[in-house]
Structures are given as structure tokens and as C-alpha cells.
Design a protein around this nucleic acid. Structure first.
Lengths: 138, 138, 138, 138
DNA sequence: GTGGTCTAGACCACC
DNA sequence: GTGGTCTAGACCACG
């Protein structure tokens, strides 16, 4: 299976962290289903054009979070995530991200109205964009 | 003049970066006015309980962004940025923060409605909180 | 790879600035090609007989100019700048240098004819010198 | 007498050095004639909006070069500069400036033809501009 | 007094 | 191995 991960070379964010964040999202949002076999470390690393050490670290970290399970000689699988856990995680993730953004707005003294207006515009753009792409793909 | 900077010792965010971010906010939000003389690097460092080198780096970085101007033997000043530039700077900062948050929402397949609801709740809480504090302070 | 940098110990020009200027020239003149891996800061510092901090500063400054790109744990690379950008960069550098020289001529009331004559003589000498050295080297 | 000095606040060049360079040019090019009384340190400093210490340093430096002469209680005068000295100085100054510019051209691998073309253009612009201004002033 | 430069050395995170 | 951060401390140049 092909795992859709986007690497941003120019970001200051460490490679392993970019991969972890995205893979975690894919698992928890259910886009990579429970029990599914992930690519081998070498295969994944080659696909991402990065070091095997980096992928190994990602698998280890997510395993220690309980999201993955490794079976010697067999491979790495997606562990079971309860619906309740999934929902709570999604919500927590979103809340954290939005709070950070609102804090930024507050720090530069952006008015409540302006912040809301900009937010609505961005949501409209990004969610609409996605729908168009889906429709286009049919 | 006393510059209100909050340092979080336990954060993974580098010291110099915390200071930079906050000082940048103070400048572009206009809370530190154009032409104002900032504390000397030694004085500031002592106040923040950090090395002079760290403060120097902050001043240097913000100077290379065009927000500060320093003259040897004289001190470091807030550079003159037009209101227009400041507004653009402010808007860009907010847009960037909100886009990151909405991207996060998209990545975990959060619905548009849920995202908006959570956002409104957070804004209400944070902006209201501020007002209460202001009223309480009177 | 060996980077040819000449340090002048006795100059009033700061060390880091000498290195920056020369390294910038090597990059924008295309002598160090796009994507090339530069020496590690420790290696470079040892070769230049200076502190790692000084080299680090050079790499950092050139990165903020967009000429270099560095990734933690991997190294520092020459950033991809288009030929167009490089040409503009080159031309700007030369124009700036020549304008400063002509301004000097004007400030001491040197006549247009004399200035041109001296310029031609210097160009002839320096460009010819270079060619002789190349021929001599064969 | 009003001494025409232009200070560039944004330059990294130290204040005293900017003043020295320009005053030296004015004296050696003969625009401030031999024996002329310069403004008092305080007066000059006030006119330039800088510290008296800075002007004092300028006068001292130029005096030690033999270009100025200070008489206790009387003031600072322009010392005599022989025509020969004046001519040699002018020439040396111009040569030094042009050599630096040509070196820059060489360092970025600018071709001889291009360098000459850019130079001619700049000379034409700057010398012509001056003449126009003179004519316009009449 | 101010900022500007450079050093040696430490510890951490990343690959 | 790589770069990233931070420290203490020195010395110089500027105003």
C-alpha cells in the first residue's frame, strides 16, 4: 500500500516529526485501517527518500504510543483504536491547533471580527478546494 | 522601558525563538512604538536571566527582518515601518497561523461545521476572558 | 570538497565577513554548483583555523539570504537559485561596487576622462594578469 | 561656513568614519581652501546631530594626518596641502576605489566587456546627472 | 556607557 | 557523524 506523506524540505520541522504527525493523523482518522500492514522500513524510507533510521524512529514512537504493533519477522501493523479514542484524539488535535492560532491573533491585537472573517475565508477556500478536487477526480 | 516577555523554561522551543516571537508581536502590533530605544543587550539579558549572546541574536535577527535598527555605541531602536507595512505584517501572521490550524483540521477529516463550532467557542472564550480581565482590573 | 577561501588576518574586516563575501561570490558565480554539499561546520572551521561559531554564523547568514539550505543531522547545501536569479545577483553586486567607485571619483572632483583612463588601465592590468597566470599554469 | 556632509544612518560604516572621509575629500580636492576656519566642535556636532566626541575624533584624526591644524582658543584651520600632494592623493584615492570594484567584478566572474559596459553606463549617468543639476540650479 | 566580534566548550536533537 | 542552542568571558570599536 502507498502511504500519502508530504515532506516539506524547507521547513525547520524535523523530518521524523513531519512523518510522525502525518502518519498519526492517517491512522487515527481511520484512513489507514486497523490491522493493516505498513511498508517495511526500507521500502518506506526509499519511497520517502530518507534514511531508514528516520523511519525506524517513526515506527518506534508510534508503537510506544500504542498506535502500531510490530511482529518480529512479519512486519508492522496498525493497532486497534477504539472509536471513542479516535474521536477524542481528533477533537483534541483540532482544539490545540485552533487555540494556537487564536493566541497568535491575540498577540498581534487582531480584532475578534477580523480574526473570524479571515478564518471563514480560509475555511471556505480550503474545504471548497478539496471538494472540487474530489469531483474532478470522478 | 520595561519589555513584557514571558519565558517558558520547560518548553522545547529555543529561548531565542520565544523572545523573538514575542518581541516581534510587540513591535508589529504597535505596542512598542517606532523609534523607541530598546534596552541594551546587557540590561535585557540580565532582566530575562539569560546570556547577552541570546539577546544579541534576537536583536540581530529582527534587524535582518527590518524591524530593528542598531547603531554601535548608541543602542538598538525600533525601525520605522509604515502603518501599511505593519498591517500587512499583522495580517500575514494571522493568516499563516489560521491556515496551519485549518490544515490540521483537514488532515484528521474534521468536518467544516465541527471546525467552525470549535473555533467560535475558542474565540468566544479567549476574547471574552481578556475583556473580563480588563474590566476586573478597573 | 575543498573551498578556496583566503583569510587576511591583519584586515580590519571581521573574519566572518571575509568568509561570507568570498563564499557568496563562489556561489553566485557558479563555481560552487547548486545542490552541492558544503563541508561540515567543524571541518570548515578546522580548515580555516577559526571557531566553529564563526563558520556557523556564515552558513546562517547566507541561509537567510537564500543562498544556502541546511538540514540538521545532514549538512549544509547550496540552495537552488535559478540562472536568472544568479545573473541578477551577479549584476547587482558589480553595479554596487562600480557605483561606489564612481562616487569616490566624483567626491574628489576627478574628471570623467581621467576616471575612465584609470579604470581602463586597471581592468587591462587585472584581467590580463589573470590570463597570463592561466597560460603560465599550463 | 556650512560644510556639506551627508550622513547615512542606515550604513554600517561608523559615523566618525563617514564624516572623516567626506571632510578629507573636501579638503584635498580644494573645496575647503587652505587656512579656512572650520566650525567649532560643538557647532559642527550640533549641525550633524551627533556627539561632540565624534567630531572631536574627526578633527584629531585629520590633524594627525596633517590636514588640519588646531590653535588653542582660536579654532581649527585647514592646513596647507601642496598641489603635488593633492594630486597624488586624489589619484591614489580613485585608484584604490576602482581596484576594489574591478576585484569584485573578477570575483563573480564578470566578463571584461560586461564590466566595461556597466562602468560606462554608470559614469554617463552620474556625471551627466551632476551637470544637469548644475544647469538646473542656474 | 553602548554594540561587534571571536573564542572554547558544553549539551542536545537529528540522521 | 551532522547541525542547533546556549553559556561564560574576553577584547575591541563607537559615542
Amino acid at each position: 500500500m502507498r502511504i500519502p506523506i508530504q515532506i516539506n524540505e524547507h521547513s525547520a520541522e524535523p523530518l521524523y516529526h513531519q512523518i510522525e504527525t502525518q502518519l498519526r493523523s492517517l491512522i487515527i482518522s481511520g484512513q489507514i485501517g486497523e490491522g493493516m500492514l505498513l511498508p517495511s522500513i526500507r521500502e518506506f524510507a526509499s519511497g520517502l527518500n530518507c534514511s531508514v533510521i528516520t523511519v525506524r524512529r517513526v515506527y518506534q514512537d508510534l508503537e510506544s504510543e500504542g498506535l502500531l504493533r510490530t511482529r518480529q519477522g512479519t512486519g508492522t501493523f496498525v493497532a486497534g483504536v477504539g472509536d471513542q479514542t479516535r474521536e477524542r484524539f481528533k477533537r483534541d488535535t483540532v482544539i490545540e491547533a485552533l487555540e494556537a492560532a487564536v493566541d497568535t491573533g491575540l498577540s498581534v491585537h487582531c480584532s475578534e471580527e477580523e480574526l473570524k472573517a479571515i478564518f471563514m475565508e480560509i475555511v471556505r477556500k480550503k474545504y471548497h478546494q478539496g471538494k472540487e478536487r474530489e469531483s474532478g477526480g470522478k
